[in-house]
Structure formats: C-alpha cells, structure tokens
Amino acid sequence: MATGGRRGAAAAPLLVAVAALLLGAAGHLYPGEVCPGMDIRNNLTRLHELENCSVIEGHLQILLMFKTRPEDFRDLSFPKLIMITDYLLLFRVYGLESLKDLFPNLTVIRGSRLFFNYALVIFEMVHLKELGLYNLMNITRGSVRIEKNNELCYLATIDWSRILDSVEDNYIVLNKDDNEECGDICPGTAKGKTNCPATVINGQFVERCWTHSHCQKVCPTICKSHGCTAEGLCCHSECLGNCSQPDDPTKCVACRNFYLDGRCVETCPPPYYHFQDWRCVNFSFCQDLHHKCKNSRRQGCHQYVIHNNKCIPECPSGYTMNSSNLLCTPCLGPCPKVCHLLEGEKTIDSVTSAQELRGCTVINGSLIINIRGGNNLAAELEANLGLIEEISGYLKIRRSYALVSLSFFRKLRLIRGETLEIGNYSFYALDNQNLRQLWDWSKHNLTITQGKLFFHYNPKLCLSEIHKMEEVSGTKGRQERNDIALKTNGDQASCENELLKFSYIRTSFDKI
C-alpha cells in the first residue's frame, strides 16, 4: 500500500482533458527560462521544448504516446526543470519506465491550478516501474492521483506527508504495488545497510526511497516546507523545498512566496507586481503582455491589467481597466465587458449561442446573426445582446428569417469595421425574408467608422429604411451602385405612401 494514499474509496472516473512563447529569463536562482504550460502528445517531438525550461508557468501534460519505446527515452533528460506552477499529468506514455532521468531536479509542483483537485496525476502508464522524482520536495496545493499503472512499484516507500501538507485526498490505487509483488529495495538494503531515512506512518517504520538508488530526502521537522541542505541544516524561511546553503534567500532552489532578481522575498516591493503567484514583474512586463494579447485571437491570451499590486489576466467583477495605466478602477454604474472572439468572429444561430455573449459591452471581433427560429426570440436576444455598444469588426445579418427588427441591439452605437466582410463591408444584410426595420432612427444613433453597407434580398425592408441608415451611420456616399439592390429590397412591402385627393359631386333626387 502506498504510504499516505487512500484505498478502496469510491472515486469519480478520471477524465483526461485534452506555445513556446518565453516569458522571460528567471535569473540567477533558476538555471534556465520560464516556459508556458505545455500539452505534449502523440510523439516526442515537442518534448524537446523543455530543454531550457527551469519553470513551467502553467501545467505540463505528457500523454497518448503509443509508439514510443524505452530506448526512445534513454537520452532524454531535462535537468534544468525545477518547478511547475500548476500540475504534472502523465497518461498512456508507452515505453517510459521512470522519471528519474527525465526530470531529475523537479523540486516543486505548486498546484496553482489543479487537474480535478490533483497536482500530480500518473494514470495508465503501462510501462512505468517507478516514479523516480527523487528531488520532489513540495506539492504546495492539491493532491496526488496514481492509478492503474500495472508495473509501478516504489510507492509504499514514499512518505507523501513530507511532500504535501495533507495526504487525506491522495488516491493511489490499482498499481502493481497493490499486489505486494514489488519487493522494493532501498539503497544499501541488499548489503544489509540502512542508507535512507525511515519514518513512521500508520504504525509502520519504513525506509523512504524513490528507487533502488535514490533515497527520499527527509528534512528535520523544524525546517517545515522550506527544505534543508545535504547536511540537514534548514533553508531560509522564504525558500521552498530545498537550498544549497542554509538561511540564505539567494540560495533557495525555489521560493515559498515570490522570486525577485535572484532572491526569494515575502512580497513584491514597489515598483514590482505579483505575477502568477510566484514571481515579481515590473510595469513594462505587464504592459507588454497586455499589448501582445490586445489584437491576438490565441486562446488563453489575456490583456493583463494591474489590481491590488498584482498583474492579473482581467479586472475583477465591479472594476474596469483604465487604459492609460492598466489599473483596475471601480465602475460607475454597470461595468464594461470586452469579449474577445477566439477566431475573430462568432455566429449567433440560437439563443444558446447568444447567451455566451451575455453582459458583453464591447465585441472584439465580428458578429454573424443567422437565426431561423426560436421561442420568445426578441426578448431572449435583447437579454443577451442588448448591452453590446461596440463591435470592432463587422455585423452580418444573414438568412435570419425569424427577425423582424434589429432593435434587440438596443445599445449598439459603434461598428468600427477594423475587419470587413469580403474585404469591403462593415454591415452586411443578406436574404432576411421578414426583416422590416433596422432601428427606430428617431431614437437610435449608430456610427460606422469604416467599410460599406450591403443589402440584398431583404424583400420587406424598404429602401427608405436603408437610406436612413446611410445618413445616420455616416456611410452615405461610400456605397457603390450594386451594394444596395434596388429590386430585391422592399419588393414585397408597401414602401411608397402617396396622399390621394378626392373630389365629389353631391346629387339628390331633384338636383344634379
């Protein structure tokens, strides 16, 4: 039985969820670079991206490699990797027998973001014989899940209580170790020597080791999670996991709180800001991140802002960003909400898709409305799209047979046209069989910064309504002859009103 693990408890099935942008060198404390989270699957090609990484700022997932063999891993080693800020997950990587050479110096898994409450997941690794993470000293947050690894031993010899604050939620089941077939031998045991430290858990006094050649490092209890030197002297209180010299914040392997210019500090002093819960960055760093993602459509890219001495992905609820200094300031009234469309555009074809934009005031991208039916549609669209004030790209209304009016965009005031449909149009209306009105132009103002209007096959939309939009939106004169079809717009509506004058002759039985 794995020490510190839980057996036999019912657990939810383990679901495996399925960018080499360097964020800056980590400095003297770390020998390499800070790398983003990685999802490495199918083959070993991307694994080489770990070569210079000291910190993975995010998670590391290595999974679904069915053609790899043990010899493929023999020359692979990433000794610079010290810390993973989120979680480490391995799933069905064939041929991998140990992690001792792959990650010989991995010391800390912070667990800032977890995989279903777990910071370390080893699942269905069919050839893994031992973990071998002999320098792993601290899992700051989260638990361990090690399950269905039929060859995995050296679990009962690990004292997880020396690595985690609590072992109650560890789930370590259905491994070879369960069948008591392992016969784990710690260093020196074969020669009758006791080389590794022994600890007591559940009444068992057991030597602690990761492999037959690597003991588990056990520091004096007084050192807590700070770690200790090879001689057993406690590291500085700002260290986490390990250090090369005692009581020196510049000799830590990793930091308990924050890293700044080669030393570990309790908090980031001005003019620095907390970033990702582990390091200090200056304003320029946060500003660069903001600008890199301002026009990016890459998933996970955030326009970072500053709030409460932190550089964070977005302002919290009730705050909006001051564009001059990136500071989050309290909103006066309802907060603006910028919604970034991942692929640059979004099609609204149902109430469900409209709900995804609920509360958005600025759309960074283009909207395509293609709704053919739905219950209580006008009210639903207004509830979900009615706060949109600005669209950076274009607005396209296409084959939306259920629409009679666009009044559900009740606050839309600006279409920038930074991206144009077919390279020309910022407003595009095609084949809307029941569209009769755009907006009530006596109450609604709309500016279209650039781009043209396109109207074709809107049989109940009168040309007068379209011409009014040209005047109000500032697009009059931009359109070419064929942009607004004269014969297919309003051709099934009563669009022309003329005053009919009647004269009559009164007659009676005795007068003409």
Score class of each variant (00 low, 15 high):
Gln276Ala: 08
Thr250Ala: 11
Ile139Met: 05
Tyr118Trp: 01
Pro70Tyr: 05
Cys219Val: 01
Arg256Trp: 13
Asn195Gln: 12
Glu124Cys: 00
Cys53His: 01
Phe123Ser: 01
Lys251Tyr: 09
Ile146Val: 15
Ile56Phe: 00
Tyr118His: 07
Pro249Ala: 09
Arg297Met: 07
Glu71Ala: 08
Arg113Gly: 09
Arg113Leu: 03
Ile306Thr: 05
Pro79Cys: 02
Cys255Arg: 00
Ile185Ser: 05
Val55Ser: 04
Pro269Glu: 06
His127Asn: 04
Asp169Gly: 13
Ser284Leu: 06
Asp277Pro: 06
Ile158Glu: 03
Gly37Thr: 14
Cys215Tyr: 03
Arg74Trp: 04
Glu180Gly: 13
Cys223Ser: 00
Lys129Gly: 04
Met137Thr: 06
Cys209His: 03
Cys328Val: 04
Pro249Tyr: 04
Asp177His: 14
Tyr134Asp: 07
Gln299Phe: 10
Cys228Phe: 02
Asp277Ile: 04
Thr329Tyr: 08
Asp178Arg: 11
Pro31Ile: 01
Leu120Gln: 00
Leu99Thr: 05
Ile56Arg: 10
Leu136Asp: 00
Pro104Ile: 01
Thr320Cys: 08
Phe91Leu: 02
Lys193Thr: 09
Glu314Cys: 06
Ile139Asn: 00
Tyr304Val: 11
Ala198Asn: 06
Ala119Arg: 00
Ser112Leu: 14
Asp248Gly: 02
Asp261Arg: 11
Phe103Val: 02
Gly232Cys: 11
Ser225Arg: 07
Cys280Leu: 03
Pro316Ser: 04
Asp177Ser: 04
Ser143Met: 07
Pro104Trp: 00
His214Phe: 12
Asn179Gln: 09
Tyr134Ser: 13
Val305Ile: 05
Asn179Leu: 05
Cys53Ile: 00
Pro316Ala: 04
Ile139Thr: 02
His302Asp: 08
Ala119Ser: 08
Arg74Gln: 11
Leu164Ala: 08
Ser166Thr: 15
Ser161Lys: 08
Leu90Glu: 00
Ile185Trp: 15
Asn195Pro: 06
Phe78Ile: 15
Met83Arg: 01
Phe73Ser: 01
Pro246Ser: 12
Met38Gly: 12
Gln61Val: 00
Asn179Arg: 15
Ile312Leu: 08
Cys182Met: 03
Arg69Lys: 03
Cys234Glu: 01
Gly37Leu: 00
Arg297Asp: 09
Leu133Glu: 00
Pro269Leu: 06
His28Lys: 12
Ser317Leu: 03
Thr189His: 13
His28Cys: 12
Val281Asp: 00
Asp169Leu: 12
Pro316Lys: 03
Phe275Pro: 00
Arg110Leu: 13
Ile56Lys: 15
Gly142Glu: 00
Gly232Phe: 04
His290Phe: 12
His48Asp: 15
Trp210Val: 01
Cys223Val: 01
Tyr171Thr: 09
Cys264Gln: 03
Asn308Arg: 13
Cys280Asp: 00
Glu97Ile: 11
Asn202Ala: 10
Val218Glu: 10
Cys239Pro: 00
Asp277Ser: 12
Ile82His: 10
Leu233His: 12
Val305Glu: 02
Asn175Gln: 10
Glu168Thr: 13
Ala198Gly: 04
Leu327Lys: 15
Cys219Ala: 02
Thr320Trp: 10
Thr229Gly: 03
Gly111Ala: 01
Lys310Ser: 13
Pro36Cys: 15
Thr140Gln: 07
Ala190Arg: 07
Tyr319Val: 10
Gln276Gly: 14
Pro246Arg: 10
Leu99Gln: 00
Cys234His: 01
Pro187Gly: 05
Leu90Tyr: 04
Trp160Lys: 10
Arg141Leu: 02
Gly262Phe: 08
Gly111Phe: 00
Cys234Met: 01
Cys268Glu: 02
Leu120Asn: 02
Asp288Gln: 14
Leu128Trp: 00
Leu326Phe: 15
Lys67Ser: 04
Arg41Ser: 00
Trp160Val: 00
Val93Arg: 00
Thr68Asp: 01
Leu164Pro: 00
Asn257Val: 00
His307Met: 15
Cys53Glu: 03
Lys217Ser: 07
Leu133Met: 06
Cys328Leu: 02
Thr68His: 02
Cys209Arg: 02
Val121Pro: 04
Cys153Phe: 00
Asp159Ile: 05
Ala156Trp: 07
Val167Ala: 13
Ala190Tyr: 14
Lys67Val: 05
Leu76Ala: 13
Leu96Cys: 08
Thr211His: 03
Gly300Phe: 07
Val121Gln: 00
Ile56Ser: 06
Cys53Leu: 00
Leu233Met: 11
Gly111Cys: 00
His28Thr: 12
Ile82Arg: 13
Thr199Tyr: 08
His291Tyr: 13
Leu106Asn: 00
Val305Lys: 06
Glu151Ile: 10
Ile84Gln: 01
Ser213Ala: 09
Glu207Ala: 14
Leu114Val: 15
Cys315Trp: 01
Val305Ala: 10
Thr157Asn: 11
Phe116Trp: 01
Glu57Cys: 06
Glu49Ile: 10
Thr140Phe: 04
Ile222Met: 11
Thr107Lys: 02
Thr140Cys: 08
Val200Trp: 02
Cys293Tyr: 07
Arg92Leu: 01
Ser324Pro: 09
Val173Thr: 02
Asn202His: 08
Ser225Gln: 10
Lys100Tyr: 04
Pro220Val: 04
Leu99His: 01
Arg145Tyr: 06
Cys182Ala: 04
Gly183Lys: 04
Ser244His: 08
His127Arg: 05
Cys182Ile: 01
Pro313Trp: 15
Cys209Tyr: 00
Thr199Asn: 12
Asp165Trp: 12
Pro31Met: 15
Ala230Thr: 08
Asn105Tyr: 08
Ser317Asp: 08
Ala230His: 14
Gln245His: 10
His214Leu: 08
Phe116Ile: 00
Pro270Tyr: 11
Cys186Ala: 02
Glu130Thr: 09
Thr250Val: 09
